[in-house]
Design a protein around this nucleic acid. Structure first.
Lengths: 120, 120
DNA sequence: TTGCTGTATCGCTATATGGCGATATAAAGT
DNA sequence: ACTTTATATCGCCATATAGCGATACAGCAA
């Protein structure tokens, strides 16, 4: 695929420009809070409105609203008004991959820890 | 530190227990800072000592040391002393996958934005 | 020992952010 | 109009953390 070579200082080029790193970091940060992961986890079962998500998250409505805004800004969920409700849904399937990889990592490490304890 | 969650209302069972979500969030958080991503980016080219990483990161040595500790605690890098130096290396190949996915996401979004500007 | 280098840790400040209550806005029904 | 419901936003507080300088520690050389 023909990738355009933008005007980049080819000499001192790191593989990723600093601006890109900030964008990437920003997106990872959206995934770095348990409440937000819980929201995404709930949304993996399908579209939900904010009230349902408040229930699922187990925290206040104001917080959920803020967290949803963060997820939305990170391009991970989409929202649409429907009457009184705001329906939320996962907008980027990459999230599934990301969480799967991270979960696999956790399971591996857990298995390692269990192994280390076997001899006790 | 988070106060201990009281006995869970068993009704709202989740696919992932809260403790797991915290662990996952913790790992994503390790990837949520530009300096740490820069360190990982540098380490993708191979083992490096702290001084080299300080150069690559463009921030103070104290910060780099702290960031490396965070990455280490998240199980993303390994360190070994060798003489005066501490050699660091990526210990979990999953990081490559995670960053690839996130970068692809960014490229997609960038392409989208470019498209929206085409008609102007 | 002393000195030098590389790394880790401490103390501090400033900023960012999560959680909460209160309030504002939006949309629909009366 | 007013009320109710659903969501968003605001103000405040407490905590977390990135960055910095100074310092402590570790390892090697003379």
């Amino acid at each position: 695929m023909p990738k355009k070579a933008p005007s980049k200082p080819a000499s001192t080029a790191k593989q990723l420009p600093a601006a890109a790193l900030e964008l990437i970091a920003h997106r990872f940060r959206a995934l770095s809070e348990p409440v937000r992961l819980k929201l995404l986890s709930a949304l993996m079962q399908g579209e939900k409105n904010v009230t349902q998500l408040v229930e699922a998250a187990g925290t206040g409505q104001a917080n959920v609203s803020k967290h949803l805004a963060i997820l939305k800004q990170a391009g991970m969920i989409a929202t649409k008004r429907e009457g009184l409700s705001t329906l939320c849904s996962i907008s980027d399937p990459a999230i599934f991959q990301l969480c799967e990889i991270m979960c696999a990592k956790l399971k591996d490490e857990h298995a390692q820890r269990s192994k280390h304890l076997e001899g006790l």
